[in-house]
Amino acid sequence: MRRRQALRAGTPAVLLALAAGLVAACSSAVQVTPAARADTAACAKVARHWPQRVGHLERTKTTSDSPTVAAWGDPAVIARCGVTSPGPTTEQCITVNGVDWVAHRLSDGVRFVSFGRDPAVEVLVPHDYAPEPLLLPAFAQAAKQVPQGQRHCTASG
Rank of each mutant, 00 (worst) to 15 (best):
V14G: 01
R37K: 11
L106W: 11
A35R: 03
A35W: 05
L15N: 03
P12C: 06
G87V: 00
P119D: 11
K144F: 01
E91Q: 12
P86Y: 07
S85E: 15
L15F: 12
L134I: 00
L124Y: 12
G10H: 02
T11V: 10
F139I: 03
P51A: 14
H127K: 12
Q141Y: 04
A71Q: 15
S107T: 08
K45V: 10
A35H: 06
P51Q: 11
R105L: 11
A42R: 04
T90I: 08
Q92R: 15
G157H: 04
R4A: 13
E122V: 00
V54M: 06
A44V: 00
R2W: 07
V125K: 08
S85I: 00
Q150P: 00
P119C: 09
T154P: 02
T33G: 02
C81I: 02
D74R: 11
A143C: 00
N97V: 06
K61C: 09
A24R: 14
T33L: 04
P133M: 09
A71E: 14
M1W: 00
I78F: 10
D39L: 06
P137S: 09
P86C: 11
G82K: 03
A155Q: 08
I94W: 02
L136Y: 05
Q145H: 00
T62V: 10
R48K: 15
T11L: 15
A9D: 05
R80P: 02
R59E: 14
E122D: 05
R53G: 02
L18D: 07
Q148H: 06
A9C: 03
P131L: 09
E58V: 07
V96A: 03
A41W: 08
P88W: 13
R59F: 08
A41I: 04
I78Y: 04
T154S: 10
R53S: 12
R48N: 13
G10T: 03
V110L: 03
H104K: 14
R3T: 05
A140W: 01
E122I: 01
S28R: 15
D65P: 05
V54D: 04
A76I: 08
V125T: 08
S114I: 01
A103R: 12
S27A: 14
K144A: 08
G73P: 04
V110A: 06
A70Y: 14
H152P: 00
F115Q: 10
A130C: 10
L22A: 13
R4N: 10
T40V: 09
G55C: 06
Q148K: 10
H152S: 04
L22I: 06
T89S: 13
H56Y: 02
C81F: 11
A71P: 09
T84Q: 06
L15I: 14
T11M: 13
H56L: 07
C153I: 04
A47K: 13
W72A: 07
A42M: 02
P12W: 11
S64N: 12
F112V: 00
L22H: 07
C26N: 11
H56P: 02
G82P: 09
L7V: 08
A44I: 00
S28N: 14
G98S: 08
T154G: 05
R80E: 13
T62F: 09
P75Y: 12
S27E: 09
A130I: 05
A24I: 05
W50E: 09
T62G: 10
E132C: 03
E132W: 06
C26W: 15
G21T: 07
P12N: 09
S85C: 03
V32P: 13
L106E: 15
P51G: 14
A79W: 12
G116T: 01
